[in-house]
């Protein structure tokens, strides 16, 4: 029995060593390889200068075309829209922009019905951030707030790669290792959508939340760090119900630029909340002329 106990104990030690080695290797590959995810792209901009940074949800990711801004202004814009991002993700991104010392002219934040969602986060952002959970106090705090197993993610080597195996596992690490590229950098974070829905229908909330503490945190962080930030609301299709939600939103964020009704043509929409590629290009032109060229 003593010999067996030694074998098991030795086995556990070896497994922990293997997990630690794998953790170091995986993390190093994610840190040093050509960015394949938006979070890796964000990190790669450390100490660099861009002109415009767009942050928000998929309504940013699929709605802002940096190449259009480049054509019209000659300036560099990056799109850090994440699918299903909430205000907590936006706050995190603002903090990381400061932490990574990314210099910029203006940050543009897209806000809409996410004002009514006081909690929640983007799982895409979460798993993309996961290799860098030990990067700094901001990523750790994000994991502590939103991850299912924050302690294990942070302290148990390789755990976070096992838990997110389909997104961060062997296949992805191999693609990173061999330098297989995605469209993230060429498109500066823009994810084009094509086609249109036959029936465009949607609904905004009929009431607005009295207060969203995360907006206060964002505003005070912006003020404290003297960041130049513009808030805007991207277009919705014309059939959207409760369109006056954005009017109510403007009472909460008076500096909001409301573009929610600037596009009337249904052919420009993938669905009621998301623009297709043609719509995104059209909207980016409008936004550039209205906010960046005046």
């Amino acid at each position: 029995m003593k010999q067996f106990s030694k074998y098991i104990f030795g086995g556990i030690v070896v497994i922990l060593i293997v997990m630690s080695v794998l953790d170091v290797v995986y993390t190093k590959v994610y840190e040093t390889s050509y960015p394949r995810t938006k979070f890796q792209y964000l990190r790669s901009l450390k100490n660099q200068k861009v002109d415009y940074i767009f942050i928000g949800s998929s309504r940013v990711e699929n709605g802002i075309v940096p190449s259009v801004i480049k054509e019209k202004t000659g300036k560099l814009a990056v799109n850090f829209g994440f699918q299903a991002a909430k205000l907590g993700d936006i706050y995190e991104l603002l903090q990381l922009i400061k932490e990574y010392n990314i210099q910029y002219e203006t940050i543009l934040i897209q806000v809409d019905y996410i004002y009514n969602i006081p909690k929640g986060h983007s799982t895409i952002f979460e798993f993309e951030m996961m290799p860098f959970v030990r990067d700094n106090a901001i990523t750790k705090a994000y994991s502590d707030t939103y991850s299912a197993h924050p302690v294990a993610n942070y302290y148990l080597p390789f755990y976070r790669y096992c838990r997110n195996d389909l997104k961060l596992g062997f296949r992805e690490i191999f693609a990173n290792f061999v330098g297989k590229k995605t469209n993230i950098i060429p498109n500066k974070g823009y994810g084009a959508k094509y086609g249109t829905s036959n029936e465009l229908k949607g609904a905004l909330p009929d009431v607005i939340l009295d207060k969203n503490k995360m907006v206060d945190s964002i505003q005070s962080f912006v003020k404290q760090n003297k960041m130049k930030v513009l808030f805007y609301c991207a277009p919705f299709c014309k059939e959207n119900q409760n369109q006056n939600f954005t009017t109510k939103l403007k009472t909460k964020i008076p500096e909001l630029h409301d573009f929610s009704r600037v596009l009337k043509d249904d052919k420009l929409f993938l669905n009621c909340n998301h623009l297709n590629d043609t719509g995104a290009r059209r909207f980016t032109e409008i936004l550039t002329e209205e906010l960046l060229m005046k």
Binding site: L22, C162, D165
Partner: peptide, 17 residues
């Protein structure tokens, strides 16, 4: 052999679903 298979489990296993 046991070690290689354990590494195989860690690296190639499906834990998320």
């Amino acid at each position: 052999k046991a070690l290689l298979i354990l590494i195989g489990i860690l690296v190639l296993g499906v834990f998320s679903s």
